Amino acid sequence: MTIVTEEESSRVAARAVERLRLAEARLARRRQTDCGPSENARAAMRLILERADEGATVTPTEIAQALGVSTASVTGMLDRLHAGGLIGFVANPADRRSKFVVPFDRTSDADAVDPVTARIREFALDLPEGAADHVVEFLDRVREVVDAECR
């Protein structure tokens, strides 16, 4: 019988996170060239669809803030999404200089924009009772380290 110590299991978890990070990086590179909209464009579409589902609006500036990118890069991304028939723009009645970003096709499913997220949600349903809280805590700590890097 093999006994796995806490230290060994923590190394196993750290290696699993590193494999995940490498897979995410490979996916991001593939999406830049082979798979349609970039990761940021997919994230923007999810935000636009979620806001529309809530009956709320979103501006390009809010999208830039949510994604942590410049408004200039969001402008180019939104132009490409608009040219692709995924979004439209409507004037902000409260501020004529501002516009809202709206989805063209409200039958679109936010999960269809990013099927990886949909699959991950399916897997999360299989987590044992109580495990989700531990996974969330661990992944949030990993995310904080990643977000703090190079700032």
Rank of each mutant, 00 (worst) to 15 (best):
R11E: 15
D111W: 04
L86Y: 09
V58S: 02
A110M: 03
A64N: 03
P115T: 03
R80G: 11
G130M: 11
E54Q: 15
G88S: 07
Q32T: 12
E122D: 11
E39G: 07
D140C: 12
A131M: 09
A83F: 07
F100A: 00
R119H: 10
S9W: 09
D79F: 09
L20T: 10
G85D: 05
R31V: 01
D114F: 01
L49M: 10
P37K: 03
D109Y: 05
D147E: 14
I87C: 09
E149C: 06
V102P: 00
S108T: 10
S10Q: 15
E54G: 05
T5P: 01
R19T: 03
A52N: 10
T5E: 08
G68H: 00
V12D: 12
A64T: 02
V58A: 01
R31K: 14
D95F: 05
N92I: 02
L81D: 02
A25K: 13
A118K: 13
A72S: 14
G68P: 00
E62F: 05
R106K: 11
G76R: 12
E8M: 10
D109P: 05
M77F: 01
A118H: 05
S108P: 00
L20I: 13
K99N: 03
E62Y: 05
D126H: 08
E39I: 11
A23E: 14
A124H: 03
A56F: 08
